[in-house]
């Protein structure tokens, strides 16, 4: 699971991915979103029987394909060629999304622009007037998986917190996120409020100050 994280430094992307992988239960059916969340796959111990779902119609997705393994008919949701694992299955899009919407997936891991303290998620549209809106499967995943984990940096490039009291970007899903994995630690969204599991690269009080949130 990589080197042990130190609380005096922020977590790297790989350390965040390793932490998410550790928290995924044995035998879980998991969807990893496009972008950073795909890093989680590198840290999953396949002996534990975690099965990866890709929304374009496959369970039992394997690693990225290399060399002769590349097959244009076998890609993941990010349109990257992948390989199949023993026990894999293919299905059409309506079945693939029924699987999500019907609550059959245990965990999905998504990136985010913002997450609100009540679990609201914004990850598809900045609302900028010249932006071309594109949502893909994000809204279906957000409301479908039993647990929605978000992987993101806690602060944006301008220093503002991406964990917020209320999202200012257009929503992807309402009250759907259960945990937020960031470079400064893991935030659990609970009915009582947001609980910080452990702080990295800053003290809990510093994070309270910088996010402006009452963290439990």
């Amino acid at each position: 699971m990589g080197e042990r994280a130190s609380t005096s430094e922020r977590l790297s992307k790989d350390q965040i991915a390793a932490m998410i992988a550790d928290d995924i239960p044995t035998g879980a059916f998991v969807n990893l979103g496009i972008g950073q969340p795909t890093l989680v796959a590198d840290h999953l111990d396949l002996e534990r029987g975690v099965v990866l779902h890709t929304e374009n119609g496959m369970l039992g997705m394997g690693r990225a394909a290399v060399g002769d393994e590349v097959d244009p008919d076998l890609i993941n949701a990010g349109k990257i060629p992948v390989v199949e694992t023993p026990g894999a299955s293919y299905f059409h899009h309506a079945d693939s999304f029924a699987m999500m919407r019907g609550g059959h997936l245990d965990v999905c891991v998504l990136g985010a622009f913002q997450v609100a303290v009540n679990g609201d998620l914004a990850n598809w549209h900045t609302g900028a007037p010249d932006a071309i809106p594109a949502v893909g499967g994000a809204m279906d995943l957000a409301i479908g998986a039993k647990d929605v984990f978000v992987m993101m940096t806690l602060f944006g490039k301008d220093g503002s917190s991406k964990l917020v009291r209320e999202c200012t970007y257009p929503l992807t899903g309402v009250a759907c996120v259960s945990r937020v994995y960031t470079d400064h630690g893991v935030f659990e969204i609970t009915p009582a409020g947001v609980r910080l599991r452990e702080a990295y690269g800053a003290t809990a009080d510093e994070l309270r100050h910088r996010t402006g949130l009452d963290l439990l």
């Binding site: 929304e55 899009h93 309506a94 693939s96 999304f97 919407r101 893909g136 809204m139 279906d140 479908g144």
Partner: peptide, 14 residues
């Protein structure tokens, strides 16, 4: 352009 969430797009055709 009509943007439709992917699962709704599939289910609307289904």
């Amino acid at each position: 352009l009509e943007v439709v969430p992917q699962g709704n797009l599939a289910e609307r055709m289904r």
